[in-house]
Design a protein around this nucleic acid. Structure first.
Lengths: 232, 232
DNA sequence: TCTCATTTGTAGCTTATGCTACGGAACAGT
DNA sequence: ACTGTTCCGTAGCATAAGCTACAAATGAGA
């Protein structure tokens, strides 16, 4: 069955067998909804009670600034989801809009369904709970990581920390940032031109690295390390 | 029993009856540890597998900057805990130190114990899971809220947003910030003197509010609202 | 290969904000 | 009441970084 393959892309079902997904499907009051391109999937003031998992297509989360223009928060690909933390935090509204950027298929799972006593005690239940707890914990980690960058003082420190952290992740002096300059500037909460200016200085004046697009070649790891650590 | 009263202070046990706490105690492989003042409770590189709940005393979380000096992250009071999100995110180390600032009593709960099939199916189990999911979700909300302030551009916008949000929470033109200037400056990620300077301007030049210590009396709500909204 | 759109780098000006240092106020403990 | 400590406001200076506008480079599609 095609659906099962798609569901398996979602990290919330990590470790599930096909049989378990089938079993879970009913217990979780799962339902599948199709949206066509441009259609609104969720809005700012919704109080989600279901986790919304994208099976196929593309969803985009955005807010509308009070000037009226849209600010994209995130673009979801297959297997990604939204609303998880809102489901388990009653009364908190979503805070952003979601629209289908392409024709999309979505799986809704009732958040509370895992608490029912009627849910049986299949192995899948504890697997799912473990996955939910892990998913939320990873989100916390991501937010705390981002906070580290944002609160770091000084353009140079931010840049050095980002590159050094990527180096540690990727274990190579040639690192890929995994984002373009705009995304990077937003992630570090600085302006793009200022960031470019400083990256140029670090390259030309201080010979710390060279770069081309998203690829950085580190030339003075120690300098980066020192800057990165002095930051925290 | 004294312990039960203390355990009930912890939000992870919200909704538990005394009987359920007793029942849970064994299943959760709970253990109680006493620390004396100054003693190390956990360190940076620990990989927590137990949630550490403070029953009595005072714990302090801090990091040591590479200059060597300590930066306090948080001070825990009775019923608060640490390590939750680390337990459910295998491989992520704690990232900070914890010491007992006073003689303290601590409750450790094995994070994985809720998954055992031997845990029975007392009502307490789903209550606990619900509480865990809610706790993590609230942490996410708090981090996202803080991110909003930090990424907001402009001192004036930050201050206005903070005061306006407090007004919305407290529904009164006389609001309490709930933190002192240092804490506020750190929360907004600005320097305290610069913040004080701007608060003075908003008071003297623009008559938006008056203040004394943590108490703000709003005089021009509309102006604050406008600034707060233009921020996002 | 030409065109168009997107991404990236550069330049120059402006200013908001960081920083250090100091003085006064508030408060607690003896 | 005296002292020490913490908290808060003020002042002045230095500068890092924002912003706008433009140019160069890249890449995609026809």
């Amino acid at each position: 069955m095609r659906i099962i393959k798609q569901i398996k892309k979602c990290s919330l079902f990590d470790g599930f067998t096909d049989a378990e997904i089938n079993e879970a499907f009913d217990y979780l009051q799962a339902r599948i909804v199709k949206y066509s391109r441009g259609q609104l999937v969720a809005k700012e003031n919704d109080l989600p009670e279901e986790i919304c998992i994208l099976l196929e297509g593309n969803l985009v989360e955005f807010t509308t600034k009070n000037s009226g223009k849209r600010e994209v928060i995130r673009s979801l690909i297959d297997g990604e989801y939204f609303g998880l933390s809102h489901c388990y935090n009653p009364g908190r509204n979503l805070g952003y809009y979601v629209v289908a950027a392409l024709d999309s298929t979505v799986l809704y799972v009732a958040a509370d369904s895992i608490f029912g006593s009627d849910i049986g005690d299949g192995e899948f239940k504890s697997k799912l709970i473990k996955n939910l707890l892990r998913a939320l914990s990873e989100k916390i980690e991501a937010l705390e990581d981002n906070n580290d960058y944002i609160t770091t003082k000084g353009m140079r420190n931010k840049i050095a920390k980002l590159i050094y952290d990527k180096y540690c992740e990727q274990n190579s002096l040639t690192v890929s940032l995994g984002m373009n300059r705009n995304e990077m500037a937003k992630y570090l909460n600085v302006s793009r031109p200022s960031m470019s200016r400083e990256m140029g200085r670090m390259r030309d004046n201080d010979d710390m690295f060279t770069f081309r697009k998203e690829i950085i070649v580190i030339k003075d790891l120690e300098a980066l390390k020192k800057l990165a650590e002095s930051a925290e």
